[in-house]
């Protein structure tokens, strides 16, 4: 894999994590980061709808299922990096924070940001998903057969 492909994959992964993060948690984690740079808007937060698609039979041709709310924005931080955000829901401040993290992840401070914000967020998401999957697993049916009759 080329370096640019690797950075693109890494960026996809943190942007995806940020889009689904709880606004309260991202705010709390980002507040712990010192020296947050000031930034200007390339695109101020905009609330809109994305039409979610499904596939017939789960695998066939696509159809339109319904919309979901999404907020997007783009910022440029003082050092010049541009951060984008597409986050689920209608929270403008949340989109701004996500874009700020995206921009900072492209600077020399990426490792600090990963430790302070992204890793804890990812761990929390994974713990929540695991806890739910564990409850589902407890409702899995174990069939048994009753043997009837002589011998």
């Amino acid at each position: 894999m080329t370096t640019s492909a690797m950075t693109e994959k890494a960026r996809q992964s943190w942007m995806s994590l940020l889009s689904k993060a709880s606004p309260e948690r991202l705010q709390a984690l980002l507040n712990r980061v010192a020296d947050r740079p000031s930034h200007s808007w390339l695109r101020p937060p905009e609330i809109g709808g994305v039409m979610v698609r499904g596939r017939m039979g789960g695998t066939g041709a696509p159809f339109n299922l319904g919309e979901m709310t999404v907020t997007r924005c783009a910022v440029r931080i003082d050092s010049g990096e541009v951060g984008h955000a597409y986050v689920q829901g209608r929270d403008r401040d949340h989109a701004e924070r996500a874009a700020l993290v995206d921009a900072l992840m492209q600077t020399a401070r990426a490792d600090d940001l990963r430790d302070a914000v992204l890793t804890p967020l990812a761990n929390e998401v994974s713990a929540r998903t695991q806890a739910r999957a564990a409850k589902a697993a407890a409702t899995k049916v174990e069939f048994f057969t009753m043997v009837r009759g002589e011998d």
């Binding site: 905009e46 809109g48 994305v50 039409m51 596939r55 789960g58 696509p62 597409y86």
Partner: peptide, 14 residues
């Protein structure tokens, strides 16, 4: 009232 930002890729229910 919502501007249409775009269309998603079809979701993978699998």
């Amino acid at each position: 009232t919502l501007p249409r930002i775009g269309y998603s890729d079809p979701v993978e229910t699998g």
